[in-house]
Design a protein around this nucleic acid. Structure first.
Lengths: 346, 346
DNA sequence: CTGTTAGCGCTTTCAT
DNA sequence: ATGAAAGCGCTAACAG
């Protein structure tokens, strides 16, 4: 089982190493008989060309480095899948680095210095491995400007962004606008919103979509219907309780993620308010569990696969020096399930 | 930004390439002053040694190939995380191949030929890249004997197995036994079980644990309390309905996955049966959604991280020619939440 | 159509 | 303490 190389093949097939290389790569015409013979020997010895040596010679690895902040965070695998999809179709290889940020530092994204080193190591390693470019997958949409210096190597960010580089993020504003439009179409006008923390860009963008809809559809505006949550299920629960005990409660609640929407559902259930009969609820993210809740929850699906796919596409364009749309925003998709109905008495 | 190599460093620091290599690897003593100078130039030019060339020379890549049948399947990312954890601690690199089986062929795992080619390609590619060994992550525990020929390269399977190779799988039998023991301790004796499909090994192993507990705790045995499901939520729903309308209904139901357990919860809710007041429910898998159901569901957590970690550990041992325990079974862990209580009137 | 050979960027033996 | 040079497994220019 000692490594068999092109030389061994050449020897056994009575040809030169060059010929073996030619049949391997189809670089030149080789007499069918010779070719046949070489191929047979290759098969016999189960020879696989050493990709390391090939890359060294060719000075091309056809490999893209992917840095994922944490592969166990819900949105990441699907993005990786999109990246793989693109790579498969274009004969590219993927080198995946998992920073394990969630495991290592939890939600302490503010403590920048604690993970800057991890990022730098990851980039250095990928540079050493001669990747042609890098895709960086965040776990949380935020500004990473100044965090990473790739020394000129092309990089594309997704699920996060910098002020200088290409990034792919779904369209938060359009998504919440779409959810509102759907609610309005169902007959709702008293629509409440439960936001995530306000230090987050997605929260603010989703608010923009909400306000745009309120304005465009001339919905009644009631400040009591605007609630700030913190992304966690408890806040959804608590704020929904407040909303339901209002003198004039909303007939629909848009929560900025499914986790909070689950809290809304629980609050409604405990208060004896029927969903969707008396209250409609829309979540955000299309987390796996949203389909298993009672009722099955209507929510916004993130275009994760597409983000990965487009990130690769943009990266390859950048590598080839082509013009790239620097801030693409693929659309979210409203998944219609059972938590929305026309308002009572409609 | 043209590639800077060891030669450039040598030239600029007025030393030979050998010396640069020595300071890079600490292979020899280098006069502090010289070392200092070399290091400075390296820093200046942001030089990263070409890992490709290093590997070619050293004939070691310190790289493990990981083949994941599908990274988007719920258990896989956590296993990868365990693999990464091990790799980080042991200065190993990971080359991840995502077969995308779920996307490409869905649940058609019987149609073996349709994915054998994908597997072979993946293995060949990793061989070419000179990985030291391979970890194979299934999406579904099943026998893969004869599917993959690594031509002597060490391989370890996890979340699936073969008859000849090392594999790491959690202990299904112990897990369902533990769940039963917990139920018994809460005072239950009329315990029903909803299985997965019987062509699956986990189903049979979990049954074994169930029967072991029935025997050991001398529980009343009622064939009506044994239900065959198909892993899907609808079967959990339907079978729970049957169970609840029995003349002598069980006081607890153990479902072989969370998805079916969610169906049980919905059936109970619709039948006006309080969980856990009148009926206790335990799931399996600790899927993310199980914590968001109402009530939050008690379930068995799979030792995914540990499976990945141990797979790597076993693989490295195999590579070094050390003795390896060929069939390790890390334990599942019962996650206590709110869907279990003593039986009514206890 | 096929063979000879230089060299990709590094490590390491052998000299000094 | 440092340098010269061979060579890892391949590709491709050059020669025949």
């Amino acid at each position: 089982m000692s490594k068999v190389g092109i030389k061994d093949i050449a020897a056994r097939a009575n040809v030169s190493t060059a010929t073996v290389s030619y049949v391997l790569n189809g670089t030149r015409n080789v007499k069918p008989a010779t070719k046949e013979r070489v191929l047979r020997v290759i098969e016999e010895l189960n020879f696989k060309p050493n990709a390391i040596a090939q890359s060294l010679k060719n000075r091309r690895t056809d490999t893209i480095g992917v840095i994922a902040e944490d592969v166990t965070v819900f949105n990441v695998p699907e993005i990786i899948d999109g990246i793989n999809d693109y790579a498969d179709r274009h004969d590219l290889h993927i080198l995946l680095t998992n920073l394990r940020l969630d495991k290592r530092i939890g939600r302490g994204f503010d403590r920048v210095e604690s993970y800057r080193k991890h990022m730098e190591n990851a980039v250095a390693e990928l540079q050493g491995k001669q990747v042609e470019g890098i895709v960086y997958i965040g776990v949380h949409p935020r500004d990473l400007t100044g965090m990473i210096d790739t020394h000129g190597k092309p990089i594309v960010y997704t699920y996060c962004y910098t002020q200088d580089d290409i990034s792919i993020q779904y369209d938060d504003e359009q998504a919440s606008y779409d959810a509102m439009a759907y609610l309005v179409k169902q007959g709702h006008s008293k629509i409440a919103i439960i936001s995530g923390t306000m230090d987050s860009l997605p929260s603010r963008m989703r608010f923009n979509g909400f306000y745009k809809a309120v304005t465009e559809f001339s919905l009644p505006f009631n400040p009591d219907w605007i609630k700030m949550g913190d992304w966690e299920t408890e806040s959804g629960f608590r704020l929904a309780q407040e909303l339901l005990s209002l003198p004039e409660p909303p007939t629909a609640i848009l929560a900025m993620n499914d986790v909070m929407a689950a809290g809304v559902l629980r609050a409604a259930s405990e208060a004896g308010v029927a969903v969707p009969g008396e209250l409609s609820v829309i979540g955000f993210d299309n987390r796996e569990f949203s389909g298993y809740l009672t009722p099955r929850m209507t929510t916004l699906e993130l275009p994760l696969h597409e983000m990965g796919y487009r990130a690769m596409d943009s990266l390859m364009k950048a590598i080839r020096g082509e013009e790239v749309d620097r801030n693409q925003s693929p659309a979210c998709k409203l998944i219609l399930r059972d938590s929305v109905a026309p308002p009572p008495g409609d």
